[in-house]
């Protein structure tokens, strides 16, 4: 970019791209009103929130406002919560991130357009079922009489007569695989769409060069969707610390807290005891700070390595 004083340049740019800026105005207004305006509220984490006083006038919390953070860090469960959260979310990441890509690639190899459509339609269906229903079905299939339990008993992996959900070693696989089932087809949509945009001439050229299907996939198809993959990966990294509570709450029980209790469920249980807004805000802030650090680093690394970045 040309060097020069910024303001005159900006003025010129605003004039030249007036149309574009005007188009962005409603989007900007949306972000300002619905995202940025409430952001001052994070200070709730440093206060003892009292409803009638409002966010700004509530008194500051003890220990320079850090008392909620300190009591979270000092909690005997802190280590376990962080460990479980990371284990569940990273395992999910490794399973539910690459497999939809594989699925999209395989789908791309299906020649019959009709069959492809049917399979794809079926594959989204689980996404439409509400979590409550999904969890009740998962419970049904892994209970002491469920067919998945039967299968594992026959393989000698599980003990007969017990629900898999009473065994702490099975929780993460159950959580992750049911998650995969819920999202496989749905997450593949974006890649299928990206694949549809691949220039057919490239395949033609590869074929002329004597590439077989596999080579075509490696040299043409995958590079074509690399940008989408990297983008989706960076986006996904931003939620490593946030494992949603709804599904875990519906699946876990005291017998497997050791592997199933995560930050969000802990906050939920805290919330049952009392509506401690400031405490949960503090944990939320802690989570988003780590997520933000992860995303910014991933973005930077990606820009260095591949030249592609989100911003």
């Amino acid at each position: 970019m040309k060097k020069g004083p910024f303001l005159p340049k900006l003025k010129k740019d605003l004039r030249r791209n007036r149309g574009a800026y005007l188009m962005f105005l409603p989007v900007l207004v949306y972000y300002l009103i619905f995202c940025y305006k409430p952001m001052y509220g994070v200070i709730i984490a440093f206060k003892n929130f009292i409803p009638t006083k409002g966010i700004l006038a509530s008194p500051w919390a003890a220990n320079h406002g850090l008392v909620h953070f300190i009591s979270f860090f000092k909690s005997v469960y802190f280590g376990r919560l962080i460990r479980n959260t990371l284990v569940i979310s990273i395992t999910s990441l490794f399973v539910t991130f690459p497999l939809p890509i594989v699925f999209a690639l395989l789908l791309n190899e299906v020649r019959s357009r009709h069959f492809k459509g049917v399979v794809q339609t079926c594959s989204y269906l689980p996404h439409f079922i509400s979590t409550v229903v999904v969890c009740s079905m998962v419970t049904l299939f892994v209970n002491e009489k469920g067919f998945i339990t039967h299968l594992l008993v026959q393989l000698g992996i599980a003990e007969d007569g017990f629900s898999l959900l009473t065994n702490k070693d099975f929780f993460v696989p159950i959580y992750v695989l049911s998650g995969l089932w819920q999202t496989l087809g749905w997450s593949a949509i974006i890649y299928v769409a990206a694949l549809s945009g691949v220039d057919q001439e490239l395949y033609e050229a590869a074929r002329i060069d004597g590439a077989n299907r596999l080579q075509q996939t490696i040299h043409v198809t995958i590079p074509a969707i690399t940008m989408t993959i990297i983008m989706m990966f960076i986006l996904r990294l931003g939620s490593v610390m946030s494992v949603g509570s709804e599904k875990i709450l519906l699946l876990y029980n005291e017998a497997i807290y050791e592997t199933a209790d995560v930050i969000s469920t802990y906050v939920f249980r805290k919330g049952l005891v009392d509506s401690s807004w400031s405490y949960s805000a503090a944990i939320g802030l802690f989570n988003s700070t780590i997520n933000l650090i992860l995303v910014v680093s991933a973005n930077r690394i990606s820009r260095k390595l591949s030249g592609m970045s989100l911003w």
Binding site: V67, S71, S75, V76, Y77, T166, E254, A255, Y257, E258, D261, R269, K270, V273, D274, S276
Partner: peptide
């Protein structure tokens, strides 16, 4: 109040979990 709610939630979690381990 704050100490009470922290202690209660932590101790209860430990109690419930351990109790089940003993029973099972």
């Amino acid at each position: 109040a704050d100490e009470y709610s922290r202690l209660t939630s932590e101790i209860n979690t430990y109690r419930d979990e351990t109790e089940i381990k003993f029973i099972r």
